[in-house]
């Protein structure tokens, strides 16, 4: 089954400890980091939903939200 499209990439800033793993290993440079290490989702359109950021995040602070699967044609 094909992966449905990404709706959102949510970063829980309360849990994030700013280690930089997500922004370093993202293959598509979706994230941007400011001088204090705070990560934001700068280029969501570039995301290929590899889930590397979500799975590598040691703070469990990143969550990929998917679009609900499209209804099957009648």
């Amino acid at each position: 089954m094909a992966r449905t499209a990404i709706k959102d990439i949510v970063i829980n800033q309360e849990w994030c400890k700013r280690c930089g793993i997500c922004s370093t290993f993202c293959p598509k440079d979706v994230f941007e980091t400011d001088a204090e290490g705070t990560v934001t989702v700068a280029h969501p359109e570039a995301c290929i939903a590899c889930e590397l950021c979500e799975r590598m995040c040691p703070d469990l602070a990143i969550h990929l939200e998917y679009e609900p699967p499209a209804e099957a044609p009648a």
Binding site: K17, C19, G20, R55, M56, C57, P58, D59, L60
Partner: peptide
Amino acid sequence: CPGCGHGTVLN
């Protein structure tokens, strides 16, 4: 700590 791998294992 920030960057500790143990959180990734929990994940």
